[in-house]
Design a binder for these strands. Structure first.
Lengths: 126, 126
DNA sequence: CAGTATCCCAGACGATACTG
DNA sequence: CAGTATCGTCTGGGATACTG
């Protein structure tokens, strides 16, 4: 049944652990940013701005700051006349990739599509 | 580097695919509910209410409805004098478990703890 | 170039009360 | 028992403008 961490997690600790993890990625633009950084890619602030149409500067900066504070991305500032800042993933950030991959695969395995099955008083006889 | 779906996903499609998946689980209580259902466990409405202290009836009902509409849980109504409703995971819902497990493991592999590393103007010479 | 600073709003969430 | 209905709150995110 592949229950997660049956060895050391109650339903509540497991849930909160995952919520904690999801919170790190929960921003409106975090995933898009991460996916532009996966695979060791390095991007400048302006690159990301260009790669992510529709994002505002406030949002880009904010999400990057949070990703940095949470240890997923590494920020590198070059003290130059026109400022230059690069963003790349940390080891740990890169390690998120397989987990997201699993989630993506699960999502795409979705059968049929969301159906509000009405729960037709079927008795428990299968 | 274990990039997710390098075969058929752009950063944007991958991100939106995962966002779609996360949205299904994104409610304040969805994960807790799911973890009380993983492993084939079947719970009545009142069971969940008891198992999840702090949740309001409105929230419990709402989150369950959404999980049902999204095809993660199966709702079974028994037309009896005192109503009886059971909730269990669908196959697809159960299949979420390993993916969440991966996420949980990743979260617990977190090194050091969140550090706002200041990005000390290191030049790109590695 | 690479950000900050304000203002504002929609939607998520919580508390409470009522019902078939 | 298993929900709905209603109301108030709070936060994430968008638009816009300004700066070292």
């Amino acid at each position: 049944m592949t229950e997660p961490e049956r060895r050391s997690h109650t339903p509540d600790t497991a849930a909160s652990g995952i919520e904690r993890a999801l919170a790190l990625v929960g921003g409106r633009w975090k995933l898009v940013i991460l996916f532009h950084l996966f695979g060791g890619r390095v991007q400048r602030y302006s690159d990301l701005e260009r790669l992510i149409p529709g994002i505002s500067q406030k949002m880009l900066a904010q999400q990057l700051r949070q990703l940095e504070a949470d240890g997923l991305v590494q920020r590198t500032v070059y003290p130059q006349v026109p400022p230059k800042v690069e963003y790349r993933l940390t080891e740990w950030g890169q390690a998120l990739c397989p987990a997201l991959d699993a989630l993506l695969s699960w999502g795409e395995r979705q059968p049929g599509g969301p159906r509000a099955s009405h729960g037709r008083a079927v008795r428990s006889d299968t």
